[in-house]
Design a protein around this nucleic acid. Structure first.
Length: 215
DNA sequence: CTCCAGGGGGCCA
DNA sequence: TGGCCCCATGGA
């Protein structure tokens, strides 16, 4: 059933080609900056970092904190996010960069990321999937909302890792599917599922109606 | 005016 | 563990 949802979304919306970024470090920066923040605001912050030549772990680490805060200000929560960007940049440099970290097992790398202040499960998994190309499914509020409305889970308050494992156990361990599925869920919820009541034009709702008629 | 974004940490029961 | 509150800007 999870795979059916994916196929319907893919046929309706087409490939989303996430994550929108020029390199792996930009993916990580975006993952931190987009915490509880609209992507349009994140784009402004990343643009600021980029045009001033600060979009690298070395430059962010040596950059004055107040200047860093002013550059990422449009993304909100700039005090904590500036600290989080510094912590992640320091971690990346001290651990030998992406190539070195890629040698860790998926589990070890995930636990390592989660040990960093400011990197929670969703941010860690976004980095694992979109910066390290690891087959880890990214769960978010949209994922819980959508699957709850489809009746695939009992509650929207389901535990993060519990839902992640359910999904990972029900779709092939294919990076492309993991990548597109999460992006498609976000796309679907932005266009149809954002509002409280389920939108009848939602392709997923249409799919459910179709299966209800067929029995 | 209110609501909410591609969350996470800290605190407390 | 689970529930709350805080963080902050900008678009709808």
């Amino acid at each position: 059933m999870f795979l059916n949802v994916y196929e319907v979304l893919f046929k309706f919306f087409g490939p989303q080609n996430w994550w929108p970024a020029d390199d792996r470090f930009e993916v990580c920066v975006g993952a931190i900056l987009t915490q509880n923040t609209s992507w349009s605001n994140v784009e402004k912050a990343i643009r600021n970092l980029k045009v001033h030549g600060y979009l690298s772990p070395e430059r962010i680490l040596e950059l004055d904190s107040d200047i860093l805060k002013s550059l990422i200000r449009p993304a909100g929560f700039y005090n904590q996010k500036a600290e989080r960007l510094k912590i992640f940049s320091r971690f990346l440099l001290e651990s030998g960069g992406f190539e070195s970290l890629s040698k860790l097992s998926n589990y070890s790398l995930r636990e390592t990321l989660l040990s960093l202040k400011g990197i929670g499960k969703e941010t860690a998994d976004s980095i694992l999937l979109y910066a390290f190309s690891k087959p880890i499914f990214v769960v978010d509020a949209y994922t819980k909302r959508l699957f709850y409305r489809l009746g695939l889970i009992d509650s929207e308050k389901i535990d993060y890792d519990k839902l992640r494992k359910i999904i990972e156990g029900n779709i092939p361990a294919d990076i492309t599917i993991y990548n597109e599925f999460h992006a498609l869920i976000v796309r679907e919820c932005k266009e149809f599922c954002r509002k409280k009541p389920v939108c009848e034009n939602c392709p997923i709702v249409r799919m459910c109606r179709f299966y209800e008629r067929k029995g």
